[in-house]
């Protein structure tokens, strides 16, 4: 009985993350358009695009190509159920932050396997860039994780959220401001928004990992991006913005973070890959270390 309940809750969480993620990207396109002084597409445009992609015929380069794309989507879906989202917290005793981060890696490994088995060098260059950038932003994010772990004396997102209950002044955003800024810059890299969008540069490497994807494969890629967006902003909300008293407040807080990322994305050009990494190892890392030192001392 409990298994069935958890299963249904898990499916609900997956559906929520997909729809919120798609909606966010849709609203994001509208906002970016307004920053560019354009009218912009309707905010449901992403749902239409997804529907079209799933109903369009496509080509495949073999079994690993299929499997990789499915893994990229499914592993993120598997990670979503461990994320506390407001009052929805399906597995409250099993929400270790590092576990969720490493489970997300499974999705990226699957995605990387799929696109690079297409045999297109552009795709592999894109993946190589994405992995290099990962090395960049994981380092400051490690400093942030360190600070939060020691500050809250727990590694479970559930308990980190619980420790921040009781108003704005208890949020880690206020308690750990430098860590928040470092994590916010790392988040920009995680989301792959400008200035850290070198992995999917359309003009240089023909949109990188997506080069051979069409139809439902691109649809799966889009789903993966949406869930990834939901997860990454969700982790940030749980870490710094005190979770949410209910799921809608949680989503609004997520959107605030995404909105910030969008503003930066809309006006910045791209870093070169090595410059992006060395930037990550300078400014955010320094902020993260300062925060960690403040927590330790």
């Amino acid at each position: 009985m409990i298994v069935l309940l958890k299963l249904i809750q898990g499916i609900g969480a997956g559906a929520l993350s997909i729809s919120i993620g798609l909606l966010f990207v849709g609203i994001g396109r509208k906002i970016t358009a307004r920053i560019h002084r354009r009218y912009g597409p309707p905010f449901v445009q992403n749902f239409i695009d997804l529907f079209k992609l799933l109903s369009k015929k496509s080509i495949s380069h073999g079994f690993t190509f299929d499997l990789g794309l499915i893994a990229g989507f499914s592993a993120l879906l598997a990670a979503v159920v461990f994320l506390p989202m407001g009052q929805i917290n399906i597995f409250p005793h099993n929400s270790s932050l590092i576990m969720i981060l490493y489970l997300m890696t499974m999705a990226y490994l699957g995605m990387a396997m799929g696109v690079s088995s297409s045999g297109n060098p552009n795709a592999t260059v894109g993946i190589a860039r994405a992995l290099t950038l990962t090395m960049g932003y994981e380092v400051p994010f490690a400093a942030v994780i360190f600070s939060v772990y020691l500050f809250a004396h727990t590694g479970s997102l559930t308990n980190i959220v619980a420790a921040q209950s009781g108003g704005f002044m208890n949020w880690n955003l206020v308690k750990l401001p430098f860590g928040f800024v470092a994590a916010e810059i790392a988040l920009q890299g995680m989301l792959g928004e400008a200035p850290f969008d070198m992995a999917i540069a359309p003009a240089e490497i023909a949109s990188g990992p997506m080069v051979e994807m069409g139809g439902k494969y691109l649809g799966f890629g889009m789903l993966q991006h949406s869930i990834g967006l939901f997860l990454e902003t969700g982790i940030m909300v749980d870490l710094f913005l005190g979770g949410g008293s209910n799921v809608w407040i949680f989503v609004i807080k997520q959107f605030e973070l995404y909105f910030l990322a969008l503003l930066v994305n809309a006006i910045f050009p791209r870093f070169k890959i090595e410059d992006g990494v060395s930037f990550m190892w300078k400014v955010p890392l320094l902020l993260g270390i300062v925060q960690a030192l403040i927590v330790v001392l």
């Binding site: 354009r38 239409i48 695009d49 496509s58 949109s207 080069v211 994807m213």
Partner: peptide
């Protein structure tokens, strides 16, 4: 494509490769 006429409002966007395009 850009702000004067903005074709994205009709859901039309440029893509990079033939696999992705309609």
């Amino acid at each position: 494509m850009t702000s004067r006429w903005d074709m994205e409002r009709f859901g039309i966007i440029p893509m990079a490769t033939p696999r992705q395009a309609d």
